[in-house]
Simulated scan of single mutants.
Amino acid sequence: MSGNPYYQGPVTDHFDGKRFFNPGGVEPGGFSKVLQWRFREKPQPWPPAVASAFLQAWPDARIEGNRLRVTMVGHASMLIQSHGFSILTDPVWSERVSPFSFAGPKRANEPGIRFEDLPPIDVVIVSHNHYDHLDIATLKRLVRVHNPLIVTPLGNDTIIRRSIANARIQTMDWGDRFDFGLGLVFHCEPAHHWSARGVNDRRFALWAAFVIETPGGLIYHVGDTGFHEGINYRAAGEKYGRFRLAILPIGAYEPRWFMKAQHQNPEEAVAGMKLCNAAYAAGHHWFTFQLTNENIHHPERELHAALEAVGISRERFPALQPGAVFDVPQV
């Protein structure tokens, strides 16, 4: 027995028989580092509630042809539509991202799409098992109403099935390919991050980025990642050539001494966009839940500064607020 309650399998270059790891990477800080962060650092104040600059969206039932639309729900939850399919990423409609309903990071704004207004959902991507990405309550609702296929890295299926026995799940390891049909193919790729649902299950389930192959172009979706010297971005660009869209995290990055290995900042996100050869990018993982120390508006401001520094227009890399709709130009 491996001692891993989520996954058992052969040793690989990122699984030691018990825990997953980032090859050549940096492990997350231990409990002493967490205490140092929490008690020695002072987070910037967030308002208890802040309205999005956009109204709640009413998505079309289907987006046909080569059109590609991304609608922001909030944080890392987005609706991706093209060629008649609808994909949700890391869906969270819950009030808090926490193991508790009464404590933990609380939503600062309403979801950009009402759950009742969702179009038929074909696929849900769950990038890893942190509570701001894997929300069991929301997944239960989605399975009950839409019965989508859930695509997720190794080990996360065990967590989901404990609460949703009838969920349809496709698990993937880094480097795996899954053909959904109708020209929609999912590729599982490395991200520099980690996983845990509690204090005793660190790195028992895998984390990942995903490449979505569509008839209208390639989409590179990264839920959470440290920049990791650009290694994974460079590899993705070399492997796939060019992306129509990269969906990249831009928030939850301060203080850098603690967050740098696991959460990139906006400047690194812009560097990642360039390294992976993305024509357009969409910024997420900000504005809805306060997880770290930066001001609620800093990710967008620092993104704009980073784009200006390298001569990329803001239109090519918007920071998405709830309800924002990004119609990605064709490449």
Rank of each mutant, 00 (worst) to 15 (best):
N200Q: 10
F180S: 05
D173M: 02
V145C: 13
D135E: 15
T152P: 11
F180M: 08
H192R: 15
D176A: 05
C188Y: 09
Y131H: 15
F178D: 12
V124K: 00
V185G: 07
Y131I: 04
R168A: 10
I125H: 02
V151E: 03
H128N: 09
V185D: 04
D201H: 04
H187P: 09
N166G: 07
V199G: 12
I164W: 01
R168S: 03
N200V: 15
A167L: 08
F204L: 12
F204I: 07
P190N: 12
A137I: 07
L206D: 13
R141S: 12
T138N: 15
R141I: 02
A137E: 10
V124Q: 02
R141T: 03
R203W: 03
G183I: 11
L182R: 12
R203E: 13
S195M: 06
D201P: 01
V151L: 12
T138M: 13
I169E: 07
R144H: 06
D173W: 01
A165I: 07
I125Q: 03
L139W: 00
S127I: 01
E189L: 11
D173I: 00
S163T: 06
G198A: 06
H130A: 02
T152Q: 13
I169G: 14
W194Y: 14
N129G: 11
V123C: 10
H192P: 00
D135G: 14
G175A: 11
K140V: 08
R161D: 02
I164M: 02
H130Y: 11
D132R: 12
L139M: 11
W174E: 12
P148C: 08
A167W: 03
M172T: 01
L134C: 12
A137P: 00
F186H: 02
G175W: 09
P148E: 02
V143R: 04
F178H: 15
R203G: 01
R161F: 01
A191D: 15
F186I: 14
N129S: 13
T152H: 10
E189K: 09
Y131T: 03
L149R: 07
E189M: 07
R202Y: 06
D179Q: 06
R177N: 08
R141C: 08
Y131E: 10
L142H: 02
V145T: 11
D135N: 14
L154P: 00
Y131N: 10
R168W: 07
Q170E: 14
S163A: 12
H130D: 05
S195D: 06
V143I: 14
V151Y: 00
L182T: 08
P153E: 01
V185L: 12
R197Q: 13
R168G: 06
I125C: 09
Q170S: 11
A205C: 15
F180R: 01
P153S: 01
R162M: 12
G183A: 07
D176T: 10
R161V: 03
T152V: 13
G155M: 04
I160L: 05
D176F: 03
L142T: 02
R197F: 04
